[in-house]
């Protein structure tokens, strides 16, 4: 009973990530990323301890809330992926399937090596856990969806949402491959999520404050500090 529910949750995580990438409205995109990050902590077999789960949910909620609050003065339309809804969903499904199949192959190799019989990390994956395979598939989908705003960023806020999706993917991969993380690692991942959300919120606020929009303008041009020489270069001979 638990496994189907967790697989549905995995589907919701992917759906949230698609919204985060494809929605034109930055608030809708933030809600999608918030849902993805929040629910990603639940896709694990076995489930984390209560303390770990609470930490992950709290970190995701804090990070998402901070980003949401930073968008109060944001303009409604913003840059989004040119793939559109259908394209983004298609890419996500394809990545999910590839991740699932790769996880299945990996689990088979581990099983052949006798890993499922011993007490080591990845035991559940080698034992054929569908949730772990689903988690790896979701991680692949989140990673691929996050790639576009991360590699070719046009919008600072959307870039931040991509980073948040990547954090969720990292948590999924850790729990699927390494077994359920201990409380300390859960706390660290929760802090990373919250701090990433805070950083994205700070960047979003700064962009709105400085430029009035979320467009990521080229900030890599050089300052004119050395384009001019001091006029007193003419004194070289006199000074010497």
């Amino acid at each position: 009973m638990v496994t189907p529910v967790l697989l549905i949750v995995a589907g919701l995580v992917v759906a949230g990530a698609v919204v985060a990438v494809a929605a034109p409205n930055p608030r809708h995109a933030t809600l999608g990323a918030f849902a993805a990050v929040l629910l990603a902590g639940l896709v694990a077999d076995p489930l984390p301890s209560a303390a770990g789960l609470v930490a992950r949910l709290a970190g995701a909620a804090l990070g998402g809330w901070l980003v949401w609050m930073a968008l109060r003065k944001a303009p409604s339309p913003a840059a989004h992926t040119s793939l559109g809804w259908a394209g983004s969903a298609g890419v996500a499904v394809a990545a999910f399937v590839i991740g699932w199949l790769a996880a299945a192959a990996f689990a088979g190799a581990l099983d052949d090596a006798g890993a499922s019989a011993s007490d080591f990390v990845g035991q559940t994956l080698a034992g054929g856990s569908l949730v772990d395979r689903g988690a790896i598939g979701v991680a692949a989908a989140l990673g691929v969806l996050a790639a576009a705003p991360l590699v070719l960023p046009r919008d600072g806020h959307r870039l931040g949402l991509g980073v948040l999706l990547l954090v969720a993917a990292g948590g999924l991969l850790t729990s699927a491959l390494g077994g359920s993380p201990d409380d300390t690692l859960e706390l660290a991942l929760a802090l990373l999520t919250a701090l990433t959300g805070a950083a994205v919120a700070a960047v979003t606020s700064a962009m709105l404050r400085m430029g009035g929009d979320l467009i990521l303008r080229d900030a890599l041009s050089r300052e004119p500090a050395v384009h001019h020489r001091a006029a007193d270069e003419a004194h070289r001979g006199a000074a010497g």
Binding site: V203, M210, R217, A219
Partner: peptide, 20 residues
């Protein structure tokens, strides 16, 4: 300084993505 937010956004990306 102008462009600081853009540079900061890229720093968020490089700090978290590389770690992940």
């Amino acid at each position: 300084r102008p462009g600081a937010a853009g540079v900061a956004a890229r720093e968020v990306r490089i700090a978290v993505a590389t770690a992940l």
